[in-house]
């Protein structure tokens, strides 16, 4: 009887999802192949600073007279790469902590989660700024910082999902059979918490891109003259009224990337759930 769902909202979800997926694929293609397509070198000075868009430079030039289009095509790689690296680091550390805490419970759980609460007590931007100020700032610190900010949240989500699955009969049966913990985690726990964790991961990735961008914007992390979308926003601020494209192009791409990632993650989760 409950097999009857509301078909209209699902269809709408599909259409939005398909559109977002296509857009994300296009964006990632641009990010990956951009450097090959760029007409000029990213650091090559090709004209007067802040010249308006023209036939040879469709997006005009930036504050040093470099081609905005070429820099935008080059500037996506670092954005995606560092955010992914930070995510991978954070999921390894936070995911492991969450799995162990959720499955073991008791003292292990309490100790790990209180440690996470300590990290959680610092506002993210403040934590990153202190980290950058203390170490002088570098891309390694940027990645480590963004990862650190994400670890407690990931650990909490993974722990809650694990603790729920841990009381199910199939996990208890494996425990009673004396199955090894890594095998229980890999076969019984991970596949069954994946959709919960993935739902959170999309949003987290989008936020990490923004966080990394904010750090770059504040001047800790990636530094000029690297062509990075967030660095471009910083360096071309002064020309906002003169040559808005130097600023708008990277900003729009950054926004499009974060929004499509969130939407795609959302739709994928919903479909996976209804497919169950």
């Amino acid at each position: 009887m409950s097999a009857v769902a509301a078909p209209r909202s699902q269809l709408a979800g599909h259409r939005v999802g398909q559109f977002a997926l296509a857009l994300l694929a296009a964006l990632l293609l641009v990010v990956a192949l951009g450097p090959l397509l760029a007409p000029d070198g990213p650091s090559e000075i090709v004209g007067a600073p802040f010249s308006a868009p023209s036939a040879t430079h469709p997006l005009g030039t930036d504050y040093l007279g470099r081609d905005v289009l070429s820099r935008v095509l080059n500037g996506g790689r670092s954005v995606v790469f560092y955010a992914l690296l930070a995510m991978a680091t954070a999921y390894t550390v936070g995911g492991l902590a969450g799995l162990v805490a959720g499955l073991r419970g008791g003292f292990t759980d309490a100790a790990l989660m209180r440690l996470m609460d300590v990290v959680l007590a610092f506002p993210p931007i403040l934590l990153l700024l202190v980290l950058a100020a203390g170490t002088g700032g570098s891309t390694a610190i940027l990645v480590a910082g963004v990862a650190l900010v994400n670890v407690p949240g990931i650990a909490r989500v993974v722990r809650a999902a694990t603790a729920e699955v841990a009381t199910k009969g199939y996990v208890e049966a494996a425990v009673a059979r004396g199955a090894r913990t890594p095998s229980i985690l890999a076969r019984d726990v991970l596949p069954n918490i994946a959709s919960t964790v993935a739902a959170d991961a999309g949003t987290r990735f989008a936020i990490s891109i923004l966080l990394a961008a904010a750090m770059n914007f504040l001047g800790v992390g990636i530094e000029p003259p690297s062509p990075d979308w967030s660095v471009m926003i910083t360096e071309n601020r002064s020309g906002l009224t003169l040559q808005p494209w130097a600023l708008a192009a990277p900003a729009l791409l950054l926004a499009a990337l974060t929004v499509t990632v969130s939407v795609v993650a959302d739709v994928l989760t919903r479909e996976r759930r209804s497919a169950r």
């Binding site: 199910k168 009969g169 199939y170 208890e172 049966a173 059979r177 019984d188 069954n192 169950r276």
Partner: peptide, 16 residues
């Protein structure tokens, strides 16, 4: 010594 649990809907790994 083997055990069978109460709730059949949670007894088996849904992904297997």
């Amino acid at each position: 010594l083997q055990i069978v649990f109460q709730n059949p809907f949670a007894s088996l790994n849904p992904r297997e």
